[in-house]
Amino acid sequence: MNIFRLTGDLSHLAAIIILLLKIWKSRSCAGISGKSQILFAMVFTTRYLDLLTAYISLYNTSMKIIYIGCSYATVYLIYAKFKATYDGNHDTFRVEFLVVPVGGLSFLVNHDFSPLEILWTFSIYLEAVAILPQLFMISKTGEAETITTHYLFFLGLYRALYLINWVWRFYFEGFFDMIAIVAGVVQTILYCDFFYLYVTKVLKGKKLSLPA
């Protein structure tokens, strides 16, 4: 465990909590893509099946349970408790265009052709693109609430910090996982346009709105 990995995990946790609190406090999930949140719930479910088969550490187990729990809670708030505020008309990304190719790729390119390993690979590939419905929704409406941009910032920062963690682990531990690294690079690149807008607009006190 190095500082980049730890701050990456904490950044991920911050993103998840920010989103939950935003929805809970405002009693509204306006501007949030339920589709992205369902994809993230699928990501955590398929990746953390090893909770049942392997013990790594108390930290590892606790964080996995927290991530899964918060993820399902978020989906519940969007599709049940605050369903009336869900902006389904703008959440129109076709998720089958992500899930089907990602599913196929996880069968073709994996470390080991076993059910758990294929599901882990699926979760890594799916996570890389799971934010697309949310970014699509923002591009469609042309704006995002500031709190939603904080959520996206921490979510993007998390994978960027993991990239530094992987460089660290390669140099100091000789460890690398090509599947995670390539997917992590793709995932981080998808946030670059958003990072630019976050720094040039939101951090200067302006609302994130896109030109028409």
């Binding site: 590892n60 991530y67 470390h111 390993e117 882990w120 993991y162």
Partner: peptide, 10 residues
């Protein structure tokens, strides 16, 4: 092929 080690990251 790479060895499928336990995935210790989140």
């Amino acid at each position: 092929a790479e060895e499928a080690a336990a995935h210790d990251e989140l």
